[in-house]
Amino acid sequence: MATVKNDSPAPVSKGRILIYVLVLFLVILAAIFAWNYTFIKGQLGVGTAYGARVACSCHYIGGREIGDCEKDFEPGMEVIGLSVDDETRQVTASVPLLASATAEFREGWGCVMIEAEKLDTR
Rank of each mutant, 00 (worst) to 15 (best):
L24D: 07
K14C: 06
S83G: 02
T121G: 02
F39E: 11
A93F: 01
V46D: 08
T121H: 11
I40R: 09
G51L: 04
A116G: 06
V84I: 14
A34W: 06
L98F: 08
F105M: 01
V95M: 01
S57N: 14
G108W: 04
L29E: 15
I114P: 04
Q90G: 00
I32T: 05
S83K: 11
M1N: 11
S13H: 07
R106C: 00
A49F: 01
I66E: 06
L26E: 05
Y20N: 04
P11K: 09
F73E: 05
E104V: 04
G45S: 11
M113T: 14
P11H: 03
I19E: 14
A103N: 05
K5F: 05
A93R: 05
R122I: 02
A52D: 05
G81K: 12
G62Y: 11
I17K: 01
G51K: 00
E107Y: 00
R53L: 09
L44V: 14
F39W: 11
V79D: 00
A52N: 05
R89Q: 13
G67F: 12
P9I: 00
T3Q: 12
V54T: 14
M77D: 10
R122F: 06
E65P: 10
G108R: 07
Y37N: 02
F105G: 08
E115S: 03
S8Q: 10
